[in-house]
């Protein structure tokens, strides 16, 4: 499914798959059951790679995600101060796969595989730079990809600090797209904030959702029921700079 998701993000008429990409898609499809973390509007932050795991956060039913999917509307990759230039160049990580797919001068996909040397474990990092979050949610839905953990640190859409306007707050994903099977969410916003945004749904968010997902029937959404099945635990225990306020939500389908 992961390989299918990747191929669904590439427009076949615009991109000709290389042998390396074909073999990668095959390898990703053969991954089998894997834990997927999705970090929408990730900017060049990689705190999820260090702290969003079951060893640090009590309550998650897995240790480390196998796959991290990052998206951001800005393409930071070619910026000399990009955090990944030094973040992954420590003895703690070994990179042993790298593929960069240039979509245009503003968009690219980077796929990397790392080993965590201290933990003797591996993970994939797939970064969509220059992509809106919604552009990635669509192929996730069409390829039946399940998201175990939505890492929603500093939600640019809720807080209004994002560069891209007109997006859908990622906290709405688990109400709008149950097909994604999102199990956990880490966000600085709690259930009360989500409820207050739901109250503004008709006038504030409904139109934007329609723009991105016209086929979604927002008239029949049972938002109250969606909120009822979210259990918010108020201390995620992710104690790193800037993440002290993250709260964990658990969605029971």
């Amino acid at each position: 499914m992961l390989g299918e998701f990747l191929s669904n993000t590439l427009n076949p008429s615009e991109y000709k798959a290389s042998d390396q990409l074909r073999s990668l898609i095959k390898e990703l499809n053969e991954l089998g059951e894997s834990r997927v973390l999705f970090y929408p509007s990730s900017s060049d932050d990689y705190s999820d790679v260090l702290y969003a795991n079951g060893r640090m956060i009590t309550g998650l039913d897995f240790e480390f995600p196998d796959v991290y999917i990052h998206t951001d509307a800005n393409n930071f990759v070619n910026i000399p101060t990009h955090r990944s230039l030094y973040f992954f160049r420590t003895p703690s990580f070994s990179e042993f796969f790298f593929l960069k797919i240039e979509i245009s001068n503003k968009k690219c996909i980077r796929i990397r595989k790392f080993k965590r040397n201290g933990l003797n474990s591996e993970f994939w990092l797939i970064e969509f730079s220059g992509f809106r979050n919604e552009d990635i949610v669509k192929p996730m839905l069409s390829s039946n990809l399940n998201i175990d953990l939505l890492y929603n640190h500093c939600d640019g859409i809720f807080s209004g600090m994002g560069d891209a306007t007109g997006g859908i707050p990622p906290l709405f994903y688990w109400i709008l797209f149950p097909e994604l099977g999102i199990k956990y969410s880490l966000s600085e916003y709690d259930i009360e904030r989500l409820k207050s945004e739901v109250l503004k749904f008709q006038e504030k968010w409904k139109y934007q959702i329609k723009v991105h997902f016209p086929e979604l029937n927002t008239d029949n959404l049972n938002l109250d029921q969606g909120l009822e099945i979210i259990d918010y635990q108020h201390d995620s225990l992710v104690r790193n700079r800037g993440n002290e306020n993250l709260k964990m939500g658990l969605y029971s389908y």
């Binding site: 260090l50 702290y51 795991n53 060893r55 640090m56 420590t90 003895p91 703690s92 965590r116 040397n117 201290g118 933990l119 104690r239 790193n240 700079r241």
Partner: peptide, 20 residues
């Protein structure tokens, strides 16, 4: 540098709070 996933907070009685 080597094991950054460890985020250690130690209690500092002088400041009466945890410090990273």
């Amino acid at each position: 540098r080597f094991l950054p996933e460890n985020h250690i907070y130690l209690y500092n009685w002088g400041f009466n709070s945890y410090q990273s």
